[in-house]
């Protein structure tokens, strides 16, 4: 479903070239739960940006769901993001003054879905993310961190994406709340067969996935099933 061939990313800054990804090849099948691990500077964020169609590689090919996304314009990338990718960020990135429902409906606005169909899809997504119904009409800045992250998960789910990309989703949460968020991911993976890619630098979080990819200095150094 997701296939990278020899991905390279080179940043040029004032004539000086920095090679961030040095030729990464990997493929992720549908319904896999994969963690990408690596220390800071290993290139995992850059890889996530390419996998999430926020950026394009300098060379190499990347296909998602049968579509080549390595040489598309910004607007075409936006189209892929809205249809195929759900993002969960470390800092939640919710609209603080909007209600939970409105936050979850936001991707549907950009998917140009008719307004009367949005609410039902948002409610389904909130249920799938195990978000309690009594808070649906609360403003998102009134929620706790764990709750906010579940709103973000529901938002990532709402447009029925091919994969969910989670970038350090537990980074701003305490261990216990982090566990509930990870449990929500596992539930989505087991019950709905969602493809989930988790980016983290903590081994115990990576263990929640089925498969772990290790990055070091822009190279994929290990690719192994999770020991859990």
């Amino acid at each position: 479903m997701l296939d990278c061939r020899d991905l390279k990313k080179i940043y040029t800054n004032g004539g000086e070239e920095t090679v961030v990804l040095k030729g990464i090849s990997l493929s992720i099948k549908k319904s896999e739960f994969v963690a990408i691990m690596g220390p800071s500077g290993s290139g995992k964020s850059t890889l996530m940006h390419i996998l999430g169609c926020l950026d394009t590689p300098t060379s190499g090919t990347y296909t998602i769901d049968g579509q080549d996304a390595s040489k598309l314009s910004d607007e075409a990338l936006a189209d892929i993001r809205v249809k195929k990718i759900g993002f969960v960020f470390q800092a939640f990135n919710l609209l603080p003054r909007a209600t939970v429902l409105r936050n979850v409906m936001l991707p549907l606005v950009y998917a140009r879905l008719a307004p009367d169909k949005r609410e039902e899809l948002a409610k389904q997504a909130l249920r799938a993310a195990a978000f309690p119904e009594e808070f649906w009409h609360h403003r998102s800045n009134q929620l706790s961190g764990g709750m906010m992250q579940r709103v973000a998960i529901a938002r990532a789910l709402v447009n029925n994406p091919a994969m969910i990309l989670a970038d350090e989703p537990t980074g701003n949460l305490d261990t216990k709340t982090g566990e509930t968020v990870l449990a929500a991911f596992q539930k989505l993976h087991r019950e709905q067969g969602r493809t989930i890619i988790l980016i983290t630098h903590e081994p115990y979080i990576a263990k929640h996935a089925e498969r772990i990819l290790y990055l070091r200095d822009g190279n994929l150094v290990r690719d192994e099933p999770s020991s859990l």
Partner: peptide, 16 residues
């Protein structure tokens, strides 16, 4: 800026 980044990440186009 962050809000704009988020909107773009979840699929907002320049026009939006």
């Amino acid at each position: 800026t962050r809000e704009i980044g988020l909107r773009k990440a979840i699929g907002a186009k320049k026009r939006d």
